[in-house]
């Protein structure tokens, strides 16, 4: 009986460690690598992450695993070791939520346009092309400033040949297919009620 209680306590402690590792980080990049989790939680860290994921799901969060490279088949243990683990929201936000969180709606629109265009261009396009595309909607200075801001935040990356690429953060947070589908669903007569984002 005591043994069982001790086992439960140990598991609970490991869950708490996993949660703190994933949520509290002092690195520039959020989340932790699989090998870091294995070092702290032991060989069965994936089971602990799975258990944590179930707990987080109940409060609208989930553990996301981002592999270094797209995998063909099912990931091997080494793939998990190299992968980055972090916590994201499990459900998308509404526009109203995004605005309430302090984001400027026009900045978010720039990001949406830039990402959707980049996704269809194989993840990379020239900065000039991108700015010219978006400046039909917003003033050029605003577009350029927003792009700079998103580069700093990691949603976009500037390559040395003045091309803009999809950044690590966009890959981690944005569902490419879902975004393209949403862009295709836009119709000029669409209701502008700010609650379209809720699914």
């Amino acid at each position: 009986m005591d043994e069982e209680k001790g086992e439960t306590e140990r598991a609970g402690r490991k869950l708490a460690i996993a949660a703190s590792m994933l949520l509290f980080s002092s690195h520039r990049l959020p989340g932790v690598r699989g090998w870091e989790l294995r070092r702290r939680l032991g060989r069965n860290y994936l089971k602990i992450i799975d258990a944590l994921n179930s707990k987080l799901n109940s409060i609208g969060l989930r553990v996301k695993i981002m592999f270094d490279q797209p995998l063909g088949g099912s990931p091997a243990e080494e793939d998990f070791d190299r992968a980055r683990f972090f916590v994201t929201l499990s459900e998308p936000l509404s526009v109203a939520d995004i605005v309430a969180a302090g984001w400027n709606i026009e900045d978010v629109a720039v990001l949406a346009a830039a990402l959707s265009y980049l996704f269809t261009k194989g993840g990379r396009a020239s900065e000039k092309e991108l700015v010219e595309l978006i400046e039909v909607k917003l003033p050029r200075w605003k577009v350029e400033a927003a792009i700079e801001r998103f580069i700093r935040k990691g949603y976009l990356t500037r390559a040395e040949d003045n091309t803009i690429k999809v950044g690590w953060r966009a890959l981690a947070e944005v569902d490419e297919k879902e975004l393209l589908k949403a862009i295709m669903d836009i119709s000029p007569t669409q209701q502008k009620d700010g609650s379209e984002g809720r699914t």
Binding site: F86, S90, P92, V108, L133, A182, I183, I186, E196
Partner: peptide, 28 residues
């Protein structure tokens, strides 16, 4: 096609499209 959609949409619609596919990272 995406360019055309971007040109015809207003910023709020674009933002809503991103919102549908966006699950931000949570960290403290």
């Amino acid at each position: 096609l995406v360019s055309l959609k971007i040109a015809s949409a207003d910023p709020r619609q674009l933002a809503a499209a991103l919102a549908r596919s966006w699950r931000p990272i949570v960290r403290a």
